[in-house]
Design a protein around this nucleic acid. Structure first.
Lengths: 196, 196
DNA sequence: CGATTCTTTGAAAACAGTCAATCTGTGTGG
DNA sequence: CCACACAGATTGACTGTTTTCAAAGAATCG
């Protein structure tokens, strides 16, 4: 599992072997079964998570019990509850495995040590958060200005590896439309031979 | 104008006078008239902007010519096109003054120098971007899971100083609903004596 | 195989968008 | 000071989209 992470982080550039060893040395490895929770709403998020294998979802439960999915985290991506982790306040989100998964965990303290000790890691993290912010603004733009059809198309082209890996009703939940509506949108695409 | 910024940034803590001087010394002051553009779509964003007085909007023009507002920047906040500024690629957004305004501008190069030279400024910026990311995720959650009514209420409570300072149709554009719909939502509130 | 999860479909109701007209308030020029 | 233009807000009627509810069909898991 560590090899996957090592390959990923090496590809980001700027690390020597000693630094890679140090980063890996404080990671905890964990296997998750499908439907297993990594973070429960109300808990304080203790870890930043790297997904080496599998797929996780980050979601929030509404008052009526339905859930809205904030994001998916497939292999070679990070996830966490950013707000809960950095401020050490109770989380409003849940993180759950959608497939059997393998993840690496870093505590916030270890992470901060690494950020202080390894400039390249700090630079990588800064770059990462910057990209996350840009992506986040882009998603807001999609949310407020696209039609439901366009949102679906955008999802498909943004996440070609995800759109038929996660259940349709979860894509609907991610986009903020009902599963029935998304099903009909997809059907109308099929009839127009715009099969995706 | 610099005094306003100085007061703001001092309140963030961690700066000595020399550092404050240095930060201020590379800022360009600029006055903006209502409706004046600071950034035009297609241009490469050259500056990070601090609003000392007035109000700016950051928006994107859709294919049909209507605009969707990504965010507002009142006094004592920052704005820029983050993606365009950091990657030096053409901007997809416009930034325009909604009121006569006074702003301070930093070029990306000067900014990077300051970040390297002044750890407290780097720490502040990191904190800032972290908060922006959290806020951004929160807005996504609102977008995908709230009704239009709830979105309006959320806007009012999130920006009590803005909701009757900007025209209603711009609030609508920010929320992603039509101005007529937002007008009706607000009217139904009045009739229910939930006057805001 | 049975149980569960996921997807689709139909019909009705709720909701939001569009278009067009009117109303309001503000500021400008005569 | 008034008349006018202009930007913004509201309203009604209509249309189109989306949700909701209910049921049934398909796929998948254990």
């Amino acid at each position: 599992m560590l090899e996957i992470f090592r390959a990923y982080i090496s590809a980001q550039g700027g690390f020597n072997n000693e630094e890679l060893d140090r980063i890996c040395s404080v990671a905890t490895q964990r296997k998750l079964r499908r439907k297993q929770l990594v973070l429960l709403e109300g808990e304080i998020c203790r870890h930043k998570i790297f997904v080496a294998q599998g797929l996780l979802k980050n979601y929030r439960v509404r008052d009526d019990g339905t859930e809205s999915i904030l994001r998916f985290a497939p292999e070679n991506t990070w996830t966490t509850d950013h707000e809960s982790l950095t401020k050490q306040i109770p989380s409003r989100n849940n993180i759950e495995a959608l497939e059997d998964s393998q993840v690496l965990l870093w505590t916030i303290d270890d992470l901060n040590d690494l950020l202080d000790a390894i400039p390249a890691f700090k630079a990588y993290t800064d770059r990462f958060i910057t990209n996350a912010l840009d992506a986040s603004y882009q998603r807001i733009h999609v949310n407020i200005s696209y039609t439901s059809e366009e949102k679906y198309d955008d999802f498909v082209s943004s996440f070609p590896d995800l759109f038929n890996r996660v259940p349709l009703h979860m894509v609907a939940s991610y986009l903020g439309v009902s599963r029935e509506t998304l099903s009909r949108i997809r059907q109308s695409r099929v009839k127009q031979n715009k099969i995706v």
